[in-house]
Amino acid sequence: MGRVTVREKILRVRDGSAGDRVDTLVVEEPLEIRLNGRALTVTMRTPGHDFDLAAGFLVSEGVVSGAADIAAIRYCAGATEDGSNTYNVLDVALAPGVAVPDMSLERNFYTTSSCGLCGKASLDAVRTIAHWSVADDPARFPAETLAALPDRLRESQRVFDRTGGLHAAGLFTPEGELLALREDVGRHNAVDKLVGWAAREGRLPLRETALLVSGRASFELAQKALMAGIPMLAAVSAPSSLAVDLAAESGLSLVGFLRGSSMNVYTGRHRVLLEEASATPMAAPG
C-alpha cells in the first residue's frame, strides 16, 4: 500500500531566526477508478481505504446502492517499468444485472464542481438518483451532543496530528458515539471513504446518524449524505446556498458553524433538541 505521510527537509523561519528541520507532509496521489475494466474517473487522494473510496463514490453517483451491487474490488498493475503494483489503479466489478452507467467522455458526474449543473437542475438530478429518503427519519440530536462532536472528531484524527493537512468526516449516533472516521486530503474523498465503509459493511441507509465534516458544507457533501440516507449534515464552517436549498427540499437537517456551544441550524431544526430553559421560538424564514 502507498504511504500516508512523507518526511521532507525544510527551512523553518520563526521570529527572525531560521534553521533546518524535518517536516511531515500528507501524501497526495492519483487514484484511477475503473468500472468493469473501463476507466471511470481519476481523483487525487491520500492513499488508504481506497476500496471504501471507490464504493462510496459509486454510491454517491447512484451507480450502486450497497454491497450487493458490487461483485469485487481489486487493485490493477501500475504503469511501472517492471509491472509492479503502484496501488493507484483499481477496478470495481459490478454484480450481474447492475446497470453500467454512461462512461463516455461527455459523461459528467454530479459530484464534480465543474459538472455544468446548477440550481434546480442540480437539485432535480440528486432527487432522481437518490435511493432513499431522509425526510421521515426520526433522528433527534441534543444541541449539547452536537456541540461536543467537533472535539471528538479532532481527537480521532491521527494523521492530522502529524501533518495538519487533512480533512475529516465522522459518522455519529444521536448519543454522540463515533461510528467511523475517515481522513483525506480531499473533503469529498473523506466522505466517500466513510460512505463506502458503510456500503461494504451493509449499513446503508445510515438512518439516525449525523455526518460531521471538518470544513464547509457544499452541495456535493449534502448530496453524498442524502445518497447514503444520512438525515443530518453538520460542518464546522459555512454551508453554500445550494447545499441549503438541497437540504430544505430533501428533508436533510443542515448545521453549520458548529463551534463550541454555538451553531447555525439552516434546515431541519426539528432534529436539534434544545434545553427548554434556553430554547426561544425562531420565526420561519420569509
Rank of each mutant, 00 (worst) to 15 (best):
H131F: 13
S133I: 05
A135W: 01
A135P: 02
D137P: 14
D137R: 13
P142Y: 13
P142W: 13
A143K: 13
A143T: 06
T145G: 00
T145V: 15
A147T: 02
A148K: 00
L149S: 04
L149T: 10
D151V: 08
R152Y: 00
R152V: 00
R152G: 06
L153M: 14
R154F: 12
R154P: 00
S156C: 10
Q157R: 15
Q157M: 15
Q157A: 14
V159H: 09
V159P: 02
D161P: 00
T163G: 07
G164T: 13
G165C: 11
L166G: 04
H167D: 07
H167F: 15
A168K: 04
A168V: 03
A169E: 02
A169T: 04
L171T: 11
F172L: 10
F172Q: 13
T173I: 06
P174I: 02
P174T: 04
G176L: 08
G176P: 07
E177R: 14
E177Q: 14
L178G: 03
L178K: 05
L178C: 07
R182T: 12
E183A: 02
H188K: 08
A190Y: 03
V195Y: 01
V195W: 04
G196W: 03
A198V: 10
A199F: 08
A199G: 07
R200Q: 15
R200V: 09
E201H: 12
E201D: 11
G202E: 00
G202T: 00
R203M: 11
R203G: 00
P205V: 12
A210W: 11
A210F: 09
L211D: 05
V213Y: 07
R216P: 00
R216I: 08
S218W: 12
E220R: 14
L221R: 14
A222F: 03
Q223M: 14
A225Y: 01
A225Q: 00
L226T: 11
L226R: 11
M227D: 06
A228N: 03
A228E: 01
A228R: 02
G229N: 04
G229Y: 10
P231G: 12
P231S: 13
M232L: 15
M232H: 06
L233I: 08
A235T: 07
A235M: 05
V236W: 05
A238Q: 10
S240N: 12
S240M: 08
A243R: 02
D245A: 15
L246W: 14
A247M: 09
E249Q: 14
E249K: 07
E249I: 01
L252W: 13
L252E: 13
S253F: 08
S253R: 09
L254G: 00
L254W: 03
G256P: 09
F257V: 12
L258S: 01
L258C: 05
L258A: 04
R259I: 12
G260V: 03
